[in-house]
Every structure is written in structure tokens, then in C-alpha cells.
Simulated scan of single mutants.
Amino acid sequence: MNNADAWGLDGVLDFFDTERSNTGQVYASEWFFLKDRMREGMRVLDVGCAQGGFASVLAEHLKDFRYTGIDINPAMIERARARHPGHTFQTITEDADWACLGDETFDLVLVLGILHLHEGWRRTIAQAWSHTAGCLLMDLRETEGPTIEDKARSYFRMDFGGKDERYASTTLPYVLINSAEALETVRRLTPGARRTSHYGYLHPASASASVPVDGVMTNVWCVER
């Protein structure tokens, strides 16, 4: 099963009906930056938007904003459109074909919760930066040891949305990046950045993850033009 289909499992779709859809469900590392970067009238791009939960988060704090969500799973986008008819949602491909956006840029670009779960994460960062007019917020899973991108050694089971073997046997890569390499990579993929900041914390990996390390640093990066 490819990554797009994995996100379309019925239980996974149902999980996002209620999760990641209000301010209380925003992680502390995300809120650290997001709370100070919301502005009335802003244009927001959410990469890997699922059902557009961050449109609901922003609506708790803003009266006027324009939100565009993109995702690789069409069923997620269908549900997002039904939940947020006033916003724009588009299906994209796993190889970062974002032609639906044209040359549009956004005041705030969110890439949260997906970079560590797909092989083309570097390409996604570069694409996201090309559509950033103001600020890019993204998160990486980091380690003090060597980078691990081998799915046989570090992977994520889609069992959080279902209880049968089909969910547990459906896996995505769980990419762990050496922290020094993460800094070099972010700088290289965001040329012309005026300021780069990050904030995170060390904690055990998700119960759905199988990783060869004791703790994972979840780092949110804030890159500003």
C-alpha cells in the first residue's frame, strides 16, 4: 500500500474527524511559534492538511483569513471540503507535484506532522519554501545519533485508526534526522531565509512507531523570509 492509500484507511479518516482540529490539540512546540504569527487577512497554506483541522484552529483566533489545504489522499480532501466549504482544498501527488498552486505564495505555510512520515521530505520542504512569502513552520523528528531513513529499521504503523491486522501491517517510514544534519538541510533548502529558529523537546516516540532510539527530539522549525 502506498503512502496516499495508507492515509485513506477508513479508521484513519475517522480519526481525523475529531483530532487536530482545535487549539487544545495543537502541540506545544507548534503553538510556540504559531501563536505569534496569526494575522487578520493572512493567506495560509497547509501541506498535508488531512481534513483541514488547522482551518478550525485559525478560526478560533482570526475573523478573516484565506486557507488553502493540500493533501495526497483524495478522501481526506473530500471530507475537508465538506467541513470547511469557505476554504480551498486540492489533492496533490506524492512526488510533490503542486501544480494546482501555480506560483501563488502565502504569508504562512504549515508543514506539520508529515515530514518524518514520507521519503520525499527534502523535496517537500523545498516546495513549501517556494510558496512561502512570509513564514514557514515545519517539524522534524531528530536524534543525536546518525540519520536513519531505512524503513526496515524505523517505521510508523497506521494502527492508531484501526484495530485489525490490516492497520498494524500498513507502515510508513519514520525518518530520524541527526540534529546537526537537520540544521544544515533546513538552511540549504530555504535559501534567502532572513531568520531560522527552532523549538522542541525530547520524548518517547509514538506508540505506533518502531524506532531504534530511546527518545526522539520533536523540533518545530520557523523559517522567515
Rank of each mutant, 00 (worst) to 15 (best):
G48M: 07
S210A: 06
S130N: 03
V220H: 04
V26N: 11
D214E: 15
G120Y: 12
G145H: 10
V216L: 08
V12R: 02
D107Q: 10
G200N: 06
G53M: 07
T185V: 03
L34N: 05
T218V: 10
A4Y: 02
Y27W: 13
T170D: 11
M42E: 09
D107S: 10
R43A: 15
D10Y: 05
F89T: 05
G162N: 09
A126I: 01
R153I: 04
S206I: 01
M138G: 07
E181P: 00
P85V: 06
A128L: 02
E78W: 04
R153D: 04
S197F: 03
V26Y: 01
R225C: 07
D36R: 09
T124S: 04
W98H: 05
R81H: 07
L34Y: 09
D71T: 12
G41K: 07
C49V: 04
F106Y: 15
Q51W: 01
T88V: 14
A128C: 11
T170V: 09
S210Q: 12
L45M: 13
S179A: 10
S56D: 15
T218R: 12
K151V: 13
E40D: 11
E142R: 13
D64V: 13
R43F: 10
G52M: 02
K163V: 14
E60C: 00
G162W: 11
N3E: 14
C135W: 06
L115Y: 13
H84E: 05
I125C: 08
G161T: 12
Y155N: 14
F33L: 03
S29C: 06
A55S: 14
R188G: 01
E165Q: 09
D103T: 12
M38G: 04
R81E: 13
A126Q: 11
F33S: 08
I92C: 12
N178F: 06
T171Q: 13
G192K: 01
R225W: 08
H116G: 11
G24L: 01
S208R: 09
Q51T: 11
L9M: 14
D14Q: 12
H61W: 05
W221T: 06
R43D: 15
L137P: 09
R20C: 06
A50I: 08
A152P: 00
A6W: 05
R188A: 15
A193K: 07
A4P: 06
E30Y: 03
L58I: 03
T88K: 11
M158L: 06
D97Q: 08
S210K: 01
T170M: 14
Y27H: 08
T171A: 11
S29H: 14
A207N: 12
A193R: 08
W121D: 02
E60D: 04
T93F: 05
T218D: 14
V220L: 08
T105A: 11
A28K: 10
